[in-house]
Amino acid sequence: MSGLDALLTPLARLVLALALAPLLLGVVNRTEALVAGRRGKPLLQVYFDVAKLLRKGAVFSTTTTWAFGLGPTLGLAATAAALLLVPQGGLPGPVSFSGDFILLAYLLAAGRLATLLSALDTGSSFEGMGASREAAFAALAEPALFLALAALAAHRGGLSLHAMLAGSAPGDLAALEPAPALAALSLFVVLLAENCRIPVDDPTTHLELTMVHEVMVLDHGGPDLGLIEYAAALKLWLYCALVAGVLLPSLPGGLWPDTLAVLAVILGLGVAVGLVESAMARLRLNRVPQLLTWAAALSALALILKVWEAGS
């Protein structure tokens, strides 16, 4: 691969991600519908929604200040910036360095803070409630994410996402080894929590008392909501890409098979999310921390296995 290719390929994949992220949401929706025996929304429904919202006007609460605009803008900016760091399909992300996962986590945190503040800016207790839950679940998901990545780092011997996710030899089937498998499972739980999917949150419900993410954005409308929806899609893509990186063995083939493989795994994960959503009920809110603790415990187990292995 030439030097120019080394730069361009990750960029191309980034563009692909930006373009296909809403499709992933569509896949999730469609899977759920199919399992439930419905035809469901069109695969491209999210594209239509975002496009329509971006063309609309808006109504702002009299309570709000400029902080209200932070959520849609900074939230999307942070997710997009984080996506820059994510390796997709055997290649590093456009920006890759030792410790880039930390930047990734904190960029997402910045986006989260912006969303929380937008929610609190409305002064509504519903949105306050959502913000409070979001903050709680995110805080508890954080160690699970870091432990899973740490287990991967210990497994593959590198501190960059690229090393963690694609540093193995070709043909190394991560899913068959205990440590990465546990880490992947843990990451998948984090994915569900961070993207407000069942069993943590139900993105389709309209009962405010049970919602987390949706209730935070109750007062957003028009372009703001469009940005938020798109950011949500990007975030789901980002986490799926991470999990896909763990699961996907490095393929010996060229650029295209690799890209296609990663797209397939990501979309497959979308199907998996849809299946989980169909098969499970929402957890009671006070059970969610337990779930996240379990995820962290799985990663910790993976990590301990690796350290013990290295020590003996």
Binding site: G57, A58, F60, S61, T62, T122, G123, S124, L218
Partner: peptide, 8 residues
């Protein structure tokens, strides 16, 4: 662009 009290 309208403005109204927060949706409650």
């Amino acid at each position: 662009v309208g403005s109204s009290p927060t949706w409650d």
